[in-house]
Design a protein around this nucleic acid. Sequence first.
RNA 1: GCUCAAGUGGCGGAAUUGGUAGACGCGCCGGAUUCAAAAUCCGGUUCUUCGGAGUGUGGGUUCGAUUCCCACCUUGAGUACCA
Length: 997
Amino acid sequence: MKYHFNEIEAKWQKYWAENQTFKAENNSEKPKYYVLDMFPYPSGAGLHVGHPLGYIASDIYARYKRHQGFNVLHPQGYDSFGLPAEQYAIQTGQHPALTTEENIKTYRRQLDQIGFSFDWSREVRTSDPSYYKWTQWIFIQLFNSWYNDDSDKAEDISELIKIFTSEGNLKVNAVCDDTIELFSAEDWNSFDSKKQQQILLQYRLTYLAETEVNWCPALGTVLANDEIVNGVSERGGHPVIRKKMTQWSMRISAYAERLLQGLENIDWTDSLKESQRNWIGKSVGASIKFKVKSLKFKVEEPTTNNQQPTTIEVFTTRPDTIFGVSFMTLAPEHELVSEITTPEQKAEVDAYILATAKRSERDRMADVKTISGAFTGAYVEHPFTKQPIPVWIGDYVLAGYGTGAVMSVPCGDQRDYDFAKHFNIPIPNIFEGADISEEAFSDKDKTIIANSDFLNGLSYKEATKKIIQELEKLGQGQGKTNYRLRDAVFSRQRYWGEPFPVYYVNSMPQMIDAKHLPIRLPEVEKYLPTETGEPPLGNATVWAWDTKQCSVVSIQLIDNKTVFPLELNTMPGWAGSSWYFNRYMDAHNEHEFASKEALNYWKDVDLYIGGSEHATGHLLYSRFWQKFLFDKGLVLVDEYAKKLINQGMILGTSAFVYRLNSNDFIKPVLFSKCFIEKVIKEEKSYTEYEEYKKHEKSLFNNVKKNHGVSMISSTVKSDWKHFSPIHADVSFVNSSDELDIEAFKNWREEFKDAIFITEIDNTYKVGREVEKMSKSKYNVVNPDQICVDYGADSLRLYEMFLGPLEQYKPWNTAGITGVHSFLKKLWKLYVGEEGLNVTGEEPSKDSLKTLHKTIKKVAEDIENFSFNTSVSTFMIAVNELTAQKCTSKDILEPFLILISPYAPHIAEELWSQLGHNESISTAPFPKFDASYLVESSKNYPISFNGKMRFTLELPMDFNAKQIEEAVMAHEKTQEQLQGRTPNKVIIVPGKIVNIVG
RNA sequence: GCUCAAGUGGCGGAAUUGGUAGACGCGCCGGAUUCAAAAUCCGGUUCUUCGGAGUGUGGGUUCGAUUCCCACCUUGAGUACCA
């Protein structure tokens, strides 16, 4: 009986589906274990061999945990809202829901054929109304919450209203907009409803605000910072400009400190935690207020009735250097710029602002070295020396960070230093013993302050502490911690996303009552923005909220009395993926996003596997939402994933043909790899060069003869080095790098008549290079064909065998024959020509040893996520058992359980052939017994000065003295020593012998 | 620039606490089987001037270093005027 993998795999995939083998129950005697893969977006291209890598690893772990007696939750679903389906809809008119449905079908078929142990009964899709109902619901909870810094958690907005009603906002310690005005209870109660709503918006965890956004005109949408790469959109590479728009934002900044601290308690990779720390960007320093002088030496008289002079607030991490301030710099966008600029400087300042606004983010980044700025004509007063300090604007100061203003200390900050040099601003030195003639001195640890009044002689730490005290006394500053983390824009001008459960009364946003959710995505004629520049939902005809009927009605009924316009933006991609891991616990609950019982049972994800590209997007936002849900008592843990592993990317091995760049040939001329290599060698080796010249001659003669080219012009020869490598589809190339010329010719019209300059043996060899796997590089390898040719078990084993899970590694289909023939050997160990080979025979000592060392190694490997080494271990074990002619059921049966997480189909089949009626999936993992590994002797490596020269078999129970005697008496020892007496003999019993001297 | 990974045969990689470097597989070479091919099986495969040398380079610690320390080089990823 042969190993018919296709039949076996189809049979067991059907069995698992029909018997719901991997369905997880929400209550069980067994301990729980939750294994999760990062949410896939079902793209139209389907899976390539790189995608399942993480899924295979998590599947092995999930199956292993079932063998260990855990109740395993291993779900899968789709992050099915997103831009590609929408862009396809724009191009073809096909509804994104249809495209998405088809893509999901393809994905599902591909996933099923690899034999994953997913519990498909819990599948979720973010674009399904029964799912996004709860995304909308969470949005409403965020809207109805504010962040109380005193209790350090989110609280209900009704609590805040109570405080406002009874005592105003003077004592409220909340995370809110910076521009909040102070009011008393009387003020609050006298405000009209609109004003009250405006104020509350400044506190809510999701709020509507005019924000400067990254607007991409080509896509007609706003992009998040992490969707922009090098100043252009990540998708499509379109230019991005800055624009002010009214947008929903998420007050993630409220959670900055907790998101940072939370990293200490989770077992995620260090590089990922580091990225999140950088992204949160905590810096400790002080905020300092500088009073603006209208005239050069006089503080401006208060003009408003609140009796406060205009001040500029700065954030600095070096308040200790305050006596080194020689100018102030504001971002050109700073709101005080127009107010403080003097009439004489107005023209210059306006021109500068205009120039910087025109420059795209990309331009600004491209030339960081160009120093530019303008003097406003205004001065501020130094809080201690009372000296005037000129105020400049410069685009090296970012409006979005800190207060958008810096106190410039050129002696201590390189950018301030460069700016001062460029504009001839004085650079006072306030550091003892520091040389600032060439560059700024920014070493905090070596700082000793000088020329700074009461700070003289102090270190950075001492001076910082002292100056903050002094600033507080003056009421002009305090210690402050700043975070780089910005509030996240939550509006997208797109169609294919979650609609907001929001309508507008008197231009103020109102939440639709949760009981009317979901608010379904309306139908539209076109998926583009409207002619007036509104988002695609502006095309919807039935998109207004009737507050009487509590339903979505035609926009023609809008009267702004009982029928109001609905929000036209949709939510971003990260909305649905920020909480899906909780939904899997209770995927079909219609009354709650998940029941208390389910949440209490599963609690959190024990193992989360996915790509590191989500480090600062999904993985930060989802932690934020989880913390919010935790504050509201809706989930039981504030970090949802205990352990997270990043799988590395599988890279493609691209194939290249080399086209000669010459106009002398009408047809493309493609050169085989050997010529290219010779060209490279040309400069290196004379003999090679001569040989190559001979080649060249016969080559061109050949070209002339076969292709009727009568002349080779001299330009061709001078252009000889100029080849263009062109990607060839890897499916035309065999394992010896030979190109299927006919297939290549038929591939694309332009190559139909191409002239191929082959190797001497008439084969055409392609060049190879490792690159990211992508359609455009024609190096994508599809798992479907591999499953047909070698089977899913081979694919699973091979993906693991390639190398460590976390590493980047190139795919090479040729190598799969190794694991495939291993599976055939495994099969043969159990099944012979006439049927099953397995007997009730007593196992041999050697076979027991093989089994138990395999149990030990495989268990350790899985615990350490070292799946590649397990595959080697299986190979070794099968080689050994075959050599031992092992037929014993006592060995072969437990061995199947070991391999079942990796190659589940073959394991199930052989398991059933051994007479089991139940699936192998929950068979208990074999127990390791160390007694089978005890050796009676050890083959000692005998080293001389650390170099191993020979080995010597000695009894295990020899002590150091006996070993030494045996070694010294050995003839090879004497041979090595050549009469010398060793200085020292190091003996580690059971390990090594090292003779020194 | 900064942060984080990683550098081992022709290739993917192994060596878990410092103790026989190159396991396992691919590829390649030789052989068996076959009319032939595929498949299968067996043997070999770091380099070598056959003394040895050897884990990116140069130092160091140690009886002993792929493993620990210092400096540097290269590659990849992330981030970037963050005050």
